[in-house]
């Protein structure tokens, strides 16, 4: 990538989702917050590294899955992240 490409729509959605997770993490207890942040950050970075950026179908799938998980995490009763760790 010689010149920096403009941020695409799908990339914006990914970043907005990441932001959503970090915002939601703030609402949890400090200990929990740190754990959520590290798991979420690892998940996003892992996918950023390993998912082909042209594989829109898969990225869309990940986005949908992430949004669903975020909705669950927003529930104040939910503190765990087990669903996020199910992978591979």
């Amino acid at each position: 990538m010689a010149s920096r490409p403009k941020i695409s729509g799908i990339q914006k959605q990914v970043l907005a989702l990441y932001r959503g997770f970090l915002r939601t993490a703030r609402l949890k207890a400090p200990e929990e917050r740190r754990r959520i942040e590290s798991v979420v950050s690892a998940e996003f970075r892992d996918n950023a590294r390993n998912v082909d950026r042209r594989n829109f179908v898969y990225i869309e799938y990940l986005l949908r899955r992430g949004k669903r998980q975020l909705e669950q995490l927003k529930n104040p009763d939910i503190t765990g992240l087990a669903t996020l760790e199910v992978k591979k």
């Binding site: 941020i7 914006k12 990441y18 932001r19 950050s41 996003f44």
Partner: peptide, 25 residues
């Protein structure tokens, strides 16, 4: 770009703001 989201969120927290996505981007 992920680091940038983190940094902007940290700035939000430092100044007790909430920056809307459109601005934050």
């Amino acid at each position: 770009s992920l680091d940038t989201v983190e940094v902007v969120m940290a700035i939000e927290e430092e100044f007790k703001l909430e920056i809307p996505d459109k601005e934050a981007d």
